[in-house]
Design a protein around this nucleic acid. Structure first.
Lengths: 213, 213
DNA sequence: GATCATCCTGACTGACCGTTCAAGGGCCGA
DNA sequence: TCGGCCCTTGAACGGTCAGTCAGGATGATC
């Protein structure tokens, strides 16, 4: 609690190049491992081995295993949303943007280790259920996600493609929940809810609610 | 693997009264503990303590910790669905039945330790993501849940309250996913998605899709 | 070239916990 | 009354890890 022997990971110049890359390496390795085998089965020694350092160094940076894993969870999800925001910032028609969003949600291997992402979600939810701090984090992330949806829809309203009296907030909440629910099925390989079917359902719902044909 | 020193938990008469109650006691205690503190933090010793027996006896019945916890997960969810089926078997109009379903999904403390149920779900998903056998189980459960929804809707069609050309299967999948997604938010105490709002959204969606006013 | 902070390590330890084991008590059938 | 089976236990074993510690290397500062 008191003093932190580890780098503050804030400013820019000093020896922080090594520091930041170290931290980042560990966070990435931890996220990978959580995705692969689950948070509960991820050991400090595993993370260290993957980075190629001694376990003691991991503790030097993060003090405690829990801090490391939670940071990794947070970091990874934040990255996901940041990527989503980036992807959607500029381009595309309303339809394209909705498709991108859905594509992203059900991405199978967009960046290499993506099926793993699902493992992260389940662990994040699980952790959030008990750790209030993690829960707060997750809420913020979800708020951001819904905000993203909302902004896209509002842009559609501004362009006259969507009726002006649509309840954007309710749509965002509903659609986000639907995407989450479908994601669970897809992640767990439910034969009844394949990836393609989930995408179809999600897009149909959005198009219908938004009045796009 | 080979021989099972523990009771088979099958037939009816013999010393199986003690056996079955023991088994049931342990399963219940395990489910409670998983709900409270999570599967990862549930120890054999905890389960034993709650039942008031020695840890060795737990192993005697279940051989291994993992077997116990998975059985507890399975047992608890199965119980949930059985209760749902029972509740909906006889009574009510279509609207009532839909409401019961939603009520059940977002039940806060219908039977005492219900908020805990959410903890079980997250752990079930997490476990299913890696253990194929658990995944198969979960799929069956979900299939049952969707089947329940489907039967209710079909009854509505038979009674002429729902259009005959409704795609029951797609509705079931979609609504089930929506309920799951909303559940996550409610379980994680998202201030934007309160229990009441989730119920409202779920019912509105169903009524609209089914053409009930 | 001495001092000091940062980064890093190998070796260790202390706790926790799943699982095993040897044995005891109770009950039933012969 | 004996033999045997089912429950049950206390005690102990053994493995696994998170976290500590004493120190070593490196490089910057004065």
């Amino acid at each position: 609690m008191a003093k932190s022997p580890a780098p503050a990971a804030a400013s820019a110049e000093p020896g922080e190049v090594a520091q930041d890359s170290r931290r980042a390496q560990m966070l990435e390795a931890a996220a990978e491992l959580i995705a692969e085998r689950g948070l509960a089965r991820t050991r400090i020694a595993d993370v260290a081995a993957r980075v190629g350092i001694s376990p003691a160094l991991v503790v030097y940076y993060f003090q405690t295993k829990e801090a490391l894993l939670i940071a990794a969870l947070r970091d990874s999800e934040t990255g996901f949303y940041a990527a989503a925001e980036g992807l959607l910032r500029n381009q595309g028609s309303l339809r394209d943007r909705l498709e991108t969003l859905v594509e992203l949600t059900f991405s199978e291997e967009s960046q290499g280790e993506v099926r793993g992402q699902w493992g992260l979600w389940f662990d994040l939810w699980n952790e959030a259920f008990r750790h209030p701090e993690v829960a707060a984090d997750r809420r913020a992330l979800d708020e951001q996600w819904r905000g993203l949806i909302g902004r896209i829809v509002r842009a559609g309203i501004d362009e006259g493609q969507v009726a002006a009296d649509l309840d954007v907030d309710t749509f965002s909440v509903t659609w986000a929940a639907l995407l989450d629910g479908l994601s669970v099925q897809v992640a767990l390989d439910d034969p009844v809810v394949t990836r393609d079917r989930a995408i179809g359902i999600a897009l149909d719902f959005a198009r219908r609610e938004l009045g796009l044909v």
